[in-house]
Design a protein around this nucleic acid. Structure first.
Lengths: 190, 190
DNA sequence: ATTATCTATAGATCTATAGATAATGC
DNA sequence: ATTATCTATAGATCTATAGATAATGC
């Protein structure tokens, strides 16, 4: 019954993957250690061989999820592509492997410093990505606009998920995407 | 020990006020019926005389909080004022009586339809308010831009709260506010 | 022999209910 | 008599720990 050292590491990774997905889908508070271990195909007592506590898992799973989210949006070529991907109905409806800020922002915000994982680095990376897309489009980057654009993406996704009128939800996604598309066609005003 | 009919109604209102504040500050899942009743100065057994269940309270408290949030931002005259107020350090640091979407959006999003309170109406009211401010400024309203602007406000606040680097948090608030201020000076492009 | 996992359980917390209490309201 | 509130507790759930188990790794 005892796995090899390598299998044990794989098990630890699977616990992180499972925790990240379940936390995004249901919220950190709503997911017990029991559910995470069950999702990873293990019994919950074994958890404490891999992590010191649920708090410990929370920080690691959040960082793990943000790494994955960065990769998921890494291959876009323009800001319009980023908006189309970030504000897709799929991203709205399947939070499990999407943006951590949009899924867990308020809940992470209540955790003590040092337990939020690499959230500042994640936001810095997203801002830098948008600046790079700006530079690729017209040779200049505008950090202020990058921050405002990122805010729009995050806010639109949060609102589209929260609202319980599907038509309003679709409108928020579609109109925000169109706003980005229209913005890209305008002459630079920065 | 039994209060008058009027006092009982006041007690019910105080339970709603307390629940709304505690939910915004700590999250719905993190606040028990016990803590709500204690905060309202009552014992937790008495709760079920006022509400059928915690789910019932959740929906009512969320609606109650969104009404209060609408009033809190009702007296602004321009979009710049709205951004200055919504993106103030005070609103970031004191979530208790602030915007419900920014504090509880992802958690509300996971609740079944019909238990999220009046969240769609709340978002519609916020969009309408921004359209009215646009019309007051230059005679036209642009719903698409209103949605994108509201998204920016919500997203910037969520990010500023989530990030654990105070400097980055301040930058997100300040730069997004400046973006709104700069935008107001430009000739209409809609 | 070491160690990753499992079984079993302790202790805390949370929702909800039952019955008692005591002052209001008819 | 009615009813808002309180006391006490049942039942479920959640975090964490202790000790047993059995296969790996030296």
């Amino acid at each position: 019954m005892r796995p090899t050292r390598e299998q044990a590491k794989e098990n630890r990774q699977r616990i992180l993957d499972t925790a990240a997905r379940l936390f995004h889908e249901n919220g950190i508070h709503a997911v017990g250690v029991d559910a995470v271990m069950k999702g990873a195909g293990l019994t919950h007592g074994g958890f404490y061989g891999h992590f010191k506590s649920k708090n410990d898992l929370t920080a690691e799973a959040a960082s793990h999820a943000m790494d994955a989210a960065l990769q998921a949006f890494a291959d876009v070529k323009t800001i319009g592509d980023l908006a189309a991907s970030y504000l897709s109905a799929e991203h709205r409806d399947i939070a499990g492997n999407g943006c951590t800020i949009a899924a867990l922002g308020p809940e992470l915000a209540r955790l003590p410093e040092g337990q939020r994982g690499t959230v500042s680095d994640y936001v810095r990376a997203q801002i830098a990505q948008i600046e790079a897309l700006q530079a690729a489009a017209d040779g200049k980057s505008d950090r202020r606009k990058a921050i405002a654009d990122l805010s729009s993406l995050v806010g639109a996704l949060v609102m589209a998920r929260t609202v319980d009128d599907p038509q309003l939800s679709d409108e928020i996604l579609t109109e925000t995407k169109r706003y980005f598309a229209a913005d890209a066609e305008k002459p630079t005003d920065s």
